[in-house]
Design a protein around this nucleic acid. Structure first.
Length: 534
RNA sequence: GCCCUCGUAGCUCAGUGGAUAGAGCGUCGGUUUCCUAAACCGUGCGUCGCAGGUUCAAUUCCUGCCGAGGGCGCCA
């Protein structure tokens, strides 16, 4: 808002100075250093070349034009450094921010319509139903769900989906492993070995089909544990069910009709190299069995019924799979841009300083359930969302377990708890917060107060950036900074103390409410709770 | 060999085409008559992997190299 007003003023001034058209890259930024003002423009630097003037001189001319008709809230302008024009604004611009936060409230502040109601289908986790989900999978759960929340807040219609790979070799091996354990026989070659196989085999009714029962057991486990970390899906898609409808054959026929298929060495191949893949890929093996890819292609085509844009969240160990799927979808006439793959780097778990290997088949794994049971869903989710999905992540379970100080989620939740504590104490003392319209925010001028307002002002663009860059961890960073600013404010700016003037007290009560809204929005986007007491 | 991601403080990681690169942890020291000390303040901490290039400006973009992880299956 203020940003647009300042930018418009800059553009108008540039036009008056004969800079036309305005080159790319002219913009407003927030200076890294306080003394450089609230906003700054690089216009003189970026336009110097086309204007054929030196940046300082052009900057001075720009400044003079701006000073002749200053935009709202502008207190002082200065020319600085190589040619920046810095805007020093009156605190009133931040008071407007607070009014905005409060009037929009939790439902609307930081909401955007960049999604414009477009539908998107996000598939994530999709762990094979051959056992419990390991703690590495928790990263995709936290990431996928938070990305979905962020995209929803940006106006996308989001469909969350889990693909159940419940047919094929791995399912059979899993069933055979359960059967062997039940019958006291050794596990089959390449079978599953974990302790859970023994435990589950003991639960299994004598007359159960081990494969079917095992898959249902795995799914129940996955559903429960994901729900425990506040991850809920709209659709669980069964590969077996889709295969029974004949979808793979239909895809095969369509690809054949489009001339994208050939037979060689007894197998059936997709001409994926026509669409940028390294080589052609088999869809039907020489033994007549489908490869993993064929039903998966049918599945992806099916997903378009539940979203115009597909997002797959895959671990780095599956990234080679993306080009062939994209090629297959293109071969079926889909636009490559509608298929997006996000590659997440893998998680390393540490306990007692030792790395824990996450292998389901070898049975040396840490389940998400173990992690959630040990530290709770909030700590786990926050930890998963602390870092960029592009970075490999090391989670030290001992550090997570330590409640004090080392857990950043408590730092944020504690800020929220303090705000609620103030509200409780105010009620006890009979202090009421008057309606915003009757409260003057002008007393909010302390650096601690302004810092909080500056941070609140960043939320809308942070949400949009997190959405556009598929980077929900930016919300984590933002909410940590807001909490940090609040703790400093809390320390230095008493609200209920008897020596605080009433008008300042009222303004601070509203400031605390604004922060509460910001924390609530941010934590909700992360899928982390905001307890009122700790 | 080819492809993807990463390389920033002692550790774990943010961050950015701009003016003196940040946080937490860890070190050392300090802060509480009234809203929760799960907090705050101070202190120290850097060839932003290396070398070129583009640019008024590069830690950020491009290229090459080095290092780490992952992938290159008629497995999923």
């Amino acid at each position: 808002m203020i940003r647009q007003q300042l930018l418009d003023a800059v553009r108008t001034a540039l036009a008056d100075l004969g800079v036309d058209p305005v080159p790319e890259g002219v913009g407003l930024e927030r200076p890294a250093r306080r003394e450089h003002g609230d906003w700054s423009t690089n216009a003189a630097l970026a336009c110097a070349k086309v204007a054929k003037r030196n940046p300082r001189e052009l900057g001075q001319a720009l400044l003079d034009h701006l000073a002749a008709a200053p935009p709202p809230h502008v207190e002082r302008l200065e020319l600085a450094g190589p040619g920046f024009v810095n805007f020093h604004l009156a605190p009133t611009w931040l008071h407007d921010v607070l009014t905005d936060v409060i009037t929009q409230g939790e439902p609307s502040y930081g909401r955007s319509d960049i999604g414009a109601g477009r539908s998107v289908n996000i598939e994530f986790v999709s762990a094979n139903p051959t056992g419990p989900i390991h703690a590495g999978g928790g990263r995709w759960g936290a990431y996928g769900d938070s990305l979905a929340r962020v995209m929803e807040r940006c106006g996308y219609k989001v469909h969350r989906e889990f693909y159940v790979n419940d047919r094929g070799v791995q399912s059979r091996l899993f069933g055979a492993s359960l059967a062997a354990a039940r019958d006291g026989e050794p596990a089959p070659d390449n079978g599953y070995l974990g302790q859970y196989i023994t435990d589950w085999a003991a639960e299994m009714p004598a007359d159960a089909d081990p494969t079917a029962w095992g898959i249902q057991r795995s799914l129940r486990d996955a559903r429960d544990v994901l729900a425990a970390m506040h991850v809920e899906y709209d659709t669980w898609s069964s590969e077996a069910a889709l295969t029974e409808t004949g979808a793979p054959e239909a895809v095969l026929a369509e690809l054949r009709a489009r001339g994208q298929i050939y037979e060689a060495d007894g197998a059936t191949w997709l001409r994926s190299s026509n669409f940028g893949d390294d080589k052609d890929r088999p869809l039907v093996k020489s033994d007549g069995e489908y490869t993993y890819a064929l039903p998966d292609i049918a599945y992806h085509l099916d997903k378009y019924r539940r979203g115009d844009h597909l997002i797959d969240i895959l671990g780095a160990d599956h990234h080679g799979y993306a080009p062939r799927m994209r090629a297959a979808l293109q071969a079926m006439g889909r636009d490559a841009d509608t298929y997006e793959v996000i590659i997440g780097q893998n998680v390393k778990l540490l306990r007692d300083g030792q790395e824990l290997k996450l292998s389901k088949r070898a049975g040396t794994m840490v389940e998400i359930r173990d992690l959630i049971d040990e530290v709770g869903p909030d700590v786990a989710r926050f930890a998963y969302l602390l870092q960029s999905i592009d970075s490999g992540q090391t989670i030290d379970i001992d550090v997570l377990r330590a409640q004090a100080a080392e857990n950043p989620v408590y730092y944020v939740q504690y800020a929220n708890a303090r705000i609620h504590s103030i509200a409780r104490e105010a009620a006890t003392r009979g202090i009421e917060r008057r309606p915003l319209a009757q409260v003057d925010l002008a007393p909010l001028v302390a650096e601690r107060e302004l810092e909080l307002l500056r941070q609140l002002e960043l939320l809308p663009e942070t949400v949009e950036l997190a959405c556009a860059e598929r980077a929900p961890h930016k919300i984590t960073t933002w909410v940590r900074e807001l909490a940090g600013a609040f703790h400093g404010f809390y320390r230095d700016c008493p609200i209920l103390r008897s020596d605080v003037p009433p008008d300042l007290q009222q303004a601070r009560l509203w400031l605390a409410e604004g922060v509460r809204i910001g924390l609530a929005v941010g934590l909700d986007l992360l899928g982390v709770s905001a307890p009122e007491q700790m």
